[in-house]
Simulated assay, not measured.
Amino acid sequence: MREVTLWSIVNIKTKTRKHHHIQDGWTSALIPRPISKEFTNQKAWTKLGENEVWQNQAGHLLENGHIVRIGEPLRR
């Protein structure tokens, strides 16, 4: 079982959440970290739509590939 952070983009106006990706380890950062410094295009992640914000949630990646979410999202 591995600790992971589940990243989603939330539209405040429509109150919808769209899963974006999973990151190794837990974090309470405001935006996801780049996979590698070589990927400079990930700076665009800081530029979301007018009504969009990042949301992250702690979880566990199980050996069978399933994700178990832990509690409420870390940032709203």
Rank of each mutant, 00 (worst) to 15 (best):
I31L: 09
R75H: 08
I22M: 14
G65K: 01
K18V: 15
G71Y: 01
I35Q: 12
V68L: 10
L30E: 13
Q23A: 06
M1S: 14
P32I: 05
L30S: 13
N11Y: 08
A44V: 06
K13G: 08
L30A: 13
L48R: 01
E38P: 06
T14P: 10
F39L: 13
I70H: 01
R76C: 06
I9L: 07
W26M: 08
E3P: 10
H19C: 08
Q57L: 02
A58G: 11
G65A: 05
E72N: 11
R69A: 09
Q42Y: 05
K43Q: 11
W7K: 03
K43R: 09
V68N: 05
I31P: 05
N51K: 03
K13W: 10
L61Q: 02
F39N: 14
W26Y: 12
I12L: 14
Q23E: 15
L62K: 02
N51R: 05
N41Q: 12
E72K: 15
K43I: 13
W45Q: 07
K47D: 04
L30C: 12
N56T: 02
S36P: 09
I67N: 05
I31F: 10
E3S: 15
R17M: 12
T40R: 12
R2M: 14
Q55R: 04
W26P: 06
P32Y: 02
I35C: 11
I22T: 15
R17D: 07
T16P: 09
N51A: 03
L61G: 01
V4C: 07
A58M: 11
A29M: 12
R33F: 12
V53I: 12
G65Q: 03
E63P: 04
D24C: 11
T27C: 07
P32Q: 04
I31V: 15
A29P: 09
L74C: 09
L61A: 00
T5K: 07
E38G: 11
V68G: 05
S28V: 12
K47H: 04
N64L: 03
L62I: 00
T16W: 07
K15A: 12
H19P: 10
